[in-house]
Amino acid sequence: MIHNIPYLAVVALVAIGFWAMIFRKNLIKVIIGIAIIESGVNFFLVALGYRSGAYAPIYTHAPSGQMVLPVPQALTLTSIVIGVAVLALMLSLAVQIYKKQGTLDTRKGVLKK
């Protein structure tokens, strides 16, 4: 149990993100919740590839010893860039929703009288 602290931290991050998505009414806060879930998933991917006591998989001036797994790190890089792209799209849509509805409250607005 004590060895699984990083995985439990991932669960805490995902839970905080889902809490923000379910109970917050402001659209910007919902987007922040999605970003927190995303960072939890990135943390999980990096934690899966960690080998205790090992070094980064880069041979330039590398100390001798084992190296951590490179493939989860590469996929995390992909996931971070996709997260930035999706975040930009979500924020632009939030701006347009504010322009159309005059509010960012998800339970009010013009369409829902």
């Binding site: 149990m1 060895h3 699984n4 995985y7 995902v14 899966l48 080998r51 205790s52 797994l69």
Partner: peptide, 20 residues
Amino acid sequence: LGLGAASMREFGVVDRAYMD
């Protein structure tokens, strides 16, 4: 999620790392 995290393999010990 918490059950799954508590019953996962130990942090820092990888298995099936042939490709890496």
